[in-house]
Structures are given as structure tokens and as C-alpha cells.
């Protein structure tokens, strides 16, 4: 329980999730009370033990809110995720991974 956590974020994606949530709250997509309420429900699934309110839980909560608000549904997010995985595989190591690098990319 007392393990030190010297870095603010354990991985770049955690930082990106944090920044997305803060930006969307400031853009008015939800209030902090709505966010904590939704996050609190996310980490208490009815059929499993309570989980950590970590950035993985933030990501799941964010996806749920975006789907509920009609901003981005699960199919859209999954399709874009698959596109980024293909784009990464097609991007030479060390170069920025752009969506355009996906072999199936259509503008």
C-alpha cells in the first residue's frame, strides 16, 4: 500500500487520458461531480470486486460518457483503434505514428 509512485503518470497514455478528461470537463461536456459519480460507478461493477480508480478506469468511464452523449460510440472507437494499430505496424520504428499510415486509410 505504501509503494512510492515517483512519476505522475506510469505511461504516456495515462497522461493523455488525464488531459482528455480535464479538457472535456473544461469544454463543458460534463461537470466534475458528474465525472466522479460516473467513475465511482465504473469502479464498482455489480458482478466483480471494486477496482482501483486508476487511469484504466478513467478510460473506461470516458468511453462510456462519450457513448452516452452520442459523441463517439463503441463501434467508432473500436474501428479507429484498429486503424491506429494497423498504422503503427506500417510505421517505421522511431517515426511518428499517423493515421494516414494505415494501409486501409481513406481520407
Amino acid at each position: 500500500m505504501t509503494e512510492p509512485s515517483p512519476n505522475t503518470f506510469a505511461a504516456p497514455w495515462e497522461a493523455q487520458v488525464f488531459a482528455l478528461v480535464v479538457s472535456l470537463q473544461e469544454a463543458g461536456l460534463f461537470t466534475w461531480s458528474e465525472w466522479t459519480d460516473r467513475l465511482g460507478r465504473e469502479i464498482r461493477p455489480g458482478d466483480a470486486p471494486e477496482r482501483a480508480a486508476d487511469y484504466g478506469a478513467w478510460l473506461a468511464t470516458l468511453e462510456a460518457i462519450l457513448a452516452e452523449r452520442g459523441v463517439a460510440g463503441p463501434e467508432t472507437v473500436s474501428a479507429r483503434t484498429a486503424a491506429f494499430l494497423r498504422a503503427a505496424a506500417a510505421t517505421p520504428h522511431g517515426q511518428p505514428i499517423r493515421l494516414e499510415n494505415d494501409p486501409l486509410y481513406r481520407p
Binding site: 488531459a19 482528455l20 479538457s23 472535456l24 478510460l59 463517439a72 491506429f84 517505421p92
Partner: peptide, 30 residues
């Protein structure tokens, strides 16, 4: 010589790009 990103990294990139396209977030501000 492809790059590798984890599924969770790809998912977060997907959200960011979708939200930026729709004008909800500004990548530079992030």
C-alpha cells in the same frame, strides 16, 4: 520494421483523434 503500440495506447490515440476531429479538444492544449 514496424512500430508497436499497445491496444490501450491505440484506444487512447483513437479517442484523441476522434475528439480532435469533432473539435472537442485541441491536441496542443492536451
Amino acid at each position: 520494421h514496424g512500430s508497436e503500440i499497445s491496444p490501450v495506447e491505440a484506444r487512447v490515440r483513437a479517442l484523441e483523434s476522434l475528439l480532435a476531429e469533432k473539435g472537442y479538444v485541441d491536441p496542443a492544449a492536451l
